[in-house]
Write a protein that binds this DNA or RNA. Structure first.
Lengths: 223, 223
DNA sequence: CGCGAGCTTGACGTTGTTCAACTAGAGTGG
DNA sequence: CCACTCTAGTTGAACAACGTCAAGCTCGCG
């Protein structure tokens, strides 16, 4: 039933470090699962039992706290999630929820830990990945705490177009409310900002359909 | 001249993983340096050449961007800084500046990389450390983007008292302006908030001298 | 056709920033 | 020892940015 990891064409880069035996062990200890839109892959503060590789679809990484929720990042194909929970607490430090239907590989975390303690090449790639995560978080902290609403929405649009879809015309996968949680602003203000960009002919907007008309203007606005 | 790492009593926990030979290699490739208040240990976007262990004193980890500066965290004795720059860019992803006089061990980054690729126990401890960093950044993102001024200042005071000084009476090492960069608010508002806490008898305040009178109140306000 | 959730709009209130003026204290040269 | 200066700290008032509230709208779906 399980696709062999050794034959998987869209596996994460860190698996290139594994031996045939290690790949076989992963193959035997993984589950290939489809999560539907809105379903929870992992829950903040839950015991860290698995790590996840996103094979297709989009997930949101978010932190929840009493009433307010904040989307830390969006992750798509190729992303690995859950490694950062391997710390003093061994609890997931964020929640991950499917934005649309998502195919994942779910791997028992002990297997990964076991490989980590035997394969230093693998560990090194993991360290690299964690450091890229830290980089992203640093720029996120800056964005959310120092930039104004207009810049944050502009940055979000550039991110969607360039990093997620790779084209200038796409259907926004998030609701206006989720866009608010992503940019840390009220839903109403998301609407106002998008409308404003539309009025200025920087984007075309019709419901969830978005077309970026002037990417350079957005990039300039986002800084 | 160099203190032997094998004999160092306040070295970072990750060194417990090293062999005698590895410790000797570190000893031979480190420098023990004192940075004076205001001096720069590492500069954002500079080539990552060394990692730093703080032996005494206080440093601020900050990101700079055109006009605005943001203090990400304060680090004291036992902290290791610079590992997170080992990623695709190999450039420091933040600046580190001495808040007061600071003793550090400065270790060539290639030495650390070399040990990492040979000692999987060391790598594991590093991964743990990076994951704790990610944890801290996540709670920082939440604090800076979701909490109001009062909560942010309260959290900062609790942090200073509990994590940095371990007592309720201390001399604030940061200027009002730096406190603004730490809490992401205007200097004037730092002054107003501190004064407000003083008026409410939650703290005693005289210039840089701070005494926490009601830690529980601060903890409650900070959430 | 009607219901409901998500979206949109405008008015208004609150929070936080900016600006300008003033104060206190530390260092400097006469 | 006393002006003098310079920087950090403080204060109040005006202003801008953003959130909240209430109402109306749209569109998919039963």
């Amino acid at each position: 039933m399980n696709t062999k990891c050794s034959l998987c064409s869209n596996r994460s880069a860190c698996f290139d470090e594994l031996s045939i035996n290690e790949l076989a062990k992963v193959t035997d200890n993984k589950a290939e699962i489809v999560y539907k839109k809105g379903e929870t892959l992992m829950k903040q503060n839950g015991a860290a039992s698995h790590i996840y590789f996103i094979k297709s679809g989009l997930v949101k990484v978010h932190v929840e706290n009493q009433n307010k929720s904040l989307i830390i990042e969006l992750a798509n194909k190729g992303s690995m999630l859950g490694i950062s929970s391997l710390n003093h607490s061994n609890r997931y430090n964020f929640s991950v929820t499917a934005v649309n239907d998502v195919e994942v590989c779910e791997i028992n975390i002990e297997i990964i830990q076991n490989i980590m303690t035997n394969n230093v090449g693998f560990s090194t790639v993991i360290i690299n990945d964690l450091n890229n995560t830290i980089d992203k978080l640093l720029s996120r902290i800056y964005c959310l705490s120092q930039k104004n609403m207009q810049s944050r929405v502009a940055e979000m649009l550039v991110f969607m177009s360039v990093k997620i879809f790779g084209k200038n015309k796409f259907v926004m996968p998030l609701s206006r409310n989720e866009l608010g949680e992503l940019t840390s602003m009220a839903t109403e203000n998301v609407v106002r900002m998008l409308k404003d960009f539309h009025k200025k002919s920087i984007i075309n907007l019709s419901g969830k359909k978005v077309e970026i008309l002037d990417l350079n203007a957005l990039k300039k606005l986002s800084s």
